[in-house]
């Protein structure tokens, strides 16, 4: 999937850094594991993340790898007794796994956040929610980053 990296690079040029001819550092091989596994392990603190409660909304196919809209929400009463404390997003084939970590408190009342993220190529995005009792829940979504065109 080197092509996708090239693509995102080109998009980065047009959208982000102006006239600088920039290239990715490292030249990691296709689908090389980044540090996402370590990040997940550290975040979970020894707990096994359980699929559920977390809902990760991302487009199946990204319109623009440089800005992919993401919504993530967690089912929780958000009370003192039971609430989400941290909600971490990682991507498993970006140069680095970390994307963003949201922090909530019972004052939040709702555990939901929406932002826009960079995806260098087709990959899985993983959302992990840590509850105040230490339990960890997760959701994943495959997002395809394509060349585009040729459709219709």
């Amino acid at each position: 999937m080197r092509r996708s990296l090239e693509l995102s690079r080109r998009r980065a040029l047009t959208l982000g850094a102006g006239a600088l001819a920039a290239t990715m550092i490292g030249g990691a091989p296709a689908h090389a594991k980044n540090d996402s596994d370590e990040l997940i392990k550290k975040f979970a603190g020894g707990k096994e993340p359980v699929k559920g409660k977390v809902k990760l909304d991302l487009p199946e196919i990204a319109e623009n790898g440089n800005t992919v809209p993401m919504n993530v929400s967690v089912e929780s009463p958000m009370t003192e007794q039971s609430h989400v404390t941290d909600l971490m997003i990682v991507a498993d084939a970006n140069p680095r796994g970390g994307v963003v970590t949201f922090r909530f408190s019972p004052l939040s009342g709702v555990a939901e956040a929406n932002t826009r993220i960079r995806l260098a190529e087709t990959q899985n995005v993983i959302a992990l929610a840590k509850m105040n009792d230490g339990s960890v829940f997760m959701d994943t979504k495959l997002v395809k980053v394509t060349i585009g065109g040729c459709g219709g």
């Binding site: 487009p59 196919i61 319109e63 623009n64 394509t146 585009g148 065109g149 459709g151 219709g152």
Partner: peptide, 24 residues
Amino acid sequence: AFPYTPIANPRWMMPNWSFGIREE
């Protein structure tokens, strides 16, 4: 609308609109 309009067709023609299936 066609969910992948800015991918199958030029995104620069509709730069401020985002599509997608948006099942929810």
